[in-house]
């Protein structure tokens, strides 16, 4: 029996861009990633750590299918992003990836359930079904009692749990968290991390957390350290 393809397979990826925009020929060229190779297997929990300016964010964008590599390949479940149109990339993000951001990125003035249902809108799911799925996802993160609350009426921890529910509602294969505890106090932060791990494990979703918090990183089954655009060490727990 063949092993399933990695959730995301990064092979010898570089990413460079010009300061001042791609059209500005005079801008200095920044080599954000200089040849990175690794893969994330289904259900795995990987943390990526590194100081700011190390290329962490660039890697996050590539793992999130928000960007394409300059050279090398990034493939999701065996599909190379090279050759996919912007629209196809959007569909891929919608189906394969769940995002959790440091800033929560919830729509203000919008009830929790509608925030959770947002990715389903772009999947063409009918509103009744969206509400049902969003309610389920909010129940899974322990927020059944907060369906109609707006972000401003929720605590930071609750907002991030709404964001987790939004990431999970599409049943992605990859949960991508960018400093998920960065805006939370220690206790709430650990609660959110526990929720991410528990949900990831329950659903068999690969979890990639980008962080500079050593404690958060240590919980992962595999830690990747990145520095100056290169992988600078990899530790399995």
């Amino acid at each position: 029996m063949r092993a399933p393809p990695p959730v995301v397979d990064v092979v010898d990826v570089t990413r460079s861009y010009r300061l001042g925009g791609d059209k500005d020929a005079d801008g200095a060229v920044v080599h954000a990633l200089r040849g990175v190779t690794f893969a994330v297997q289904p259900g795995e929990f990987v943390s990526i750590v590194g100081p700011s300016g190390s290329g962490k964010s660039t890697l996050l964008h590539l793992l999130g299918a928000l960007d394409r590599p300059s050279t090398g390949t990034v493939a999701f479940s065996g599909r190379d992003v090279e050759g996919l149109s912007d629209a196809e990339l959007a569909v891929l993000r919608n189906r394969e990836i769940g995002f959790v951001f440091q800033q929560f990125q919830l729509l203000a003035r919008t009830p929790a359930w509608q925030n959770v249902a947002l990715p389903l809108v772009y999947r063409g799911v009918a509103v009744r079904e969206r509400r049902r799925l969003a309610t389920e996802a909010l129940a899974a993160v322990g927020l059944s009692h907060r369906l109609g609350h707006r972000p401003a009426q929720l605590s930071g921890g609750e907002q991030q749990r709404v964001a987790v529910a939004r990431a999970l509602v599409t049943e992605p294969r990859l949960l991508l968290a960018d400093e998920p505890t960065g805006n939370l106090d220690t206790v709430t932060g650990s609660e959110v991390m526990a929720l991410l791990r528990q949900q990831g494990a329950e659903r068999g979703v690969a979890l990639v957390v980008i962080t500079h918090d050593p404690e958060v990183a240590a919980a992962a089954s595999r830690r990747i350290r990145i520095r100056d655009g290169c992988i600078h060490g990899e530790v399995a727990a």
Binding site: D86, A87, R95, L118, P119
Partner: peptide
């Protein structure tokens, strides 16, 4: 940006 990350296409 958020909508695009969640799967909105340019035309959406």
């Amino acid at each position: 940006g958020l909508r695009k990350a969640l799967g909105a296409r340019t035309r959406d």
